[in-house]
Design a protein around this nucleic acid. Structure first.
Length: 476
DNA sequence: ATGTGC
């Protein structure tokens, strides 16, 4: 991106003043190197988002932002229903409520050294991964609707996961307002046997070692200690979310003229929050959110079974579960007025600061754990939400390293087999059903996650707490 | 991201 098109507000904040059809400014949080590397498409997309009806304050891009469908991935935008605000299927993304959860194990590197290979093989055998993979659960239509309404709470009621997990999940594991009646039969059919599966692309399950602590009090509260192991699970709502996204994108494009919306880009398909279509989408999107929460809960159960078998001394407890692709109603003060806004985060993590009522009581004084997943074979980070982020970017932070190269280009640049060998030599065991999938996810196809996290920290979006190094990676 | 797409 050409820096001349931006006004630099600080070392890590760049502004684009309203021009053309923009209703509000656009703001990019990143250091100079990251901004230079950013695709010009991010500029184009974030200014288009700033032109949507009812947008409040500004359109934001996080340090990991890159070209997405309509909205950039790493984009944040909030809309006011009272000002004709919209909800956008492209603003949430196809993989609705894709997210990451991290569990601490109470184990050290030494504890698992003798069984590392066995753990990798057993996790790979137990957690289905890859395109079209299916799990052991089969949901009939009654179960499907109950799951879509109940999320992780449904899973726990069925014996998957534990009640204590729910306190450590956004919205306590179950988003209100889910409307399974607005989820098509096609979407439900695709999901019938996909619960408890990882999926493909950048989804993964990793065994990670805590290698560095930056904030001791927060790390203590999150029970993260150097040399100890955690498990991180990154996945979403599989075929169901994708089907919902596809169907509503189409419907929103078709209905835009009737809603009086002149789309700056048809990929930004949206509908007024107060319209029937907007409400149907919100109901279906919330159902997909619950599907993703149930999925991560079922996978957690499968992971615990493997650990109970291979390392009986372990006790896997959830640190936190964050969603990356969502639209949520949250309270903010804008121009001195209290507002309930519809905050879209696409490839961005909610990052509530200390004192936020949406946090579980035991974490309320310290802030929300923010999990930033790195690319395959590279570090991940745990951060904590700040009070400043509330005003800076609707309590949002980055979600990962962010792609720097297309999948296609990556698959032509690297070979999966060679990458697996290379990473094994560095002590990272990769298990994946797809050699090409591994090539597409090559660490070199991503931005430097450390630079992304440092920029988020310097901008005040969230504060660094701990660094994690992968030991085992089950890749979709 | 995806019962993948050139």
């Amino acid at each position: 991106m050409d820096l001349a098109r931006l006004q630099q507000a600080s070392a890590v904040e760049w502004r684009i003043g309203p021009h053309g059809r923009m209703r509000v400014p656009a703001v990019i949080f990143a250091d100079e190197d990251l901004v230079r590397q950013m695709d010009d498409k991010v500029y184009e997309q974030i200014t288009h988002v700033a032109a949507l009806p009812g947008i409040v304050q500004a359109a934001y891009a996080m340090p990991d932002a890159h070209w997405g469908y309509g909205f950039p991935i790493g984009g944040v935008a909030a809309f006011d229903a009272d000002e004709g605000g919209v909800v956008s299927a492209g603003g949430v993304g196809f993989d609705i409520s894709c997210g990451v959860r991290t569990l601490h194990t109470g184990l050290t590197v030494a504890d698992i050294a003798p069984v590392k290979q066995k753990l990798a093989d057993r996790l790979f055998a137990s957690i289905p991964a890859g395109v079209g993979s299916s799990g052991k659960l089969r949901l009939n239509s009654v179960d499907m609707d109950a799951m879509l309404r109940g999320g992780a709470c449904w899973a726990v009621e069925r014996g998957y996961g534990s009640p204590a997990d729910l306190e450590r999940i956004e919205e306590r594991g179950c988003v209100a307002g889910a409307a399974p009646e607005h989820v098509s039969e096609a979407a439900k059919r695709r999901q019938r046997d996909e619960l408890g599966t990882l999926g493909s692309g950048n989804h993964y399950l990793e065994l990670q070692e805590v290698t560095q602590i930056y904030d001791v009090p927060a790390a203590d509260r999150f029970r993260l200690r150097v040399g100890e192991l955690v498990v991180s699970i990154h996945c979403g709502s599989r075929g169901l979310g994708h089907q919902i996204g596809t169907e509503f994108l189409k419907a929103m494009v078709l209905a835009a003229p009737a809603h009086g919306i002149d789309l700056p880009d048809r990929e930004l398909a949206c509908a007024p929050i107060d319209s029937a279509l907007g409400q149907s989408y919100l109901g279906a999107m919330r159902a997909a959110t619950n599907c993703a929460l149930a999925n991560r809960e079922v996978i957690t159960h499968l992971v615990r079974q493997v650990f109970a078998d291979v390392v009986p001394d372990s006790h896997l407890a959830l640190v936190y579960d964050v969603s990356h692709n969502t639209c949520k109603q949250e309270s903010y003060t804008v121009d001195g007025k209290a507002k309930r806004l519809y905050v879209h985060r696409k490839g961005a993590t909610r990052a509530f600061g200390p004192g936020h009522p949406g946090l579980p009581p035991e974490l309320r004084d310290i802030g929300q754990p923010v999990i930033v997943g790195g690319s395959m074979g590279t570090a991940s980070y745990i951060l904590v939400g700040t009070e400043a982020s509330h005003q800076l970017a609707f309590s949002s932070a980055c979600h990962g390293a962010g792609r720097a190269m297309s999948r296609h280009q990556a698959s032509r640049t690297w070979h999966g087999r060679a990458l697996v060998d290379e990473l094994a030599a560095q002590g990272v065991l990769i298990r994946s059903p797809s050699s090409r999938g591994v090539a597409e996810e090559a660490p070199g196809a991503y931005k430097d996650v450390r630079a992304v996290v440092d920029a988020a920290d310097r901008a005040g979006l969230a504060r660094k707490v701990a660094r994690l190094r992968p030991l085992v990676c089950i890749k979709g």
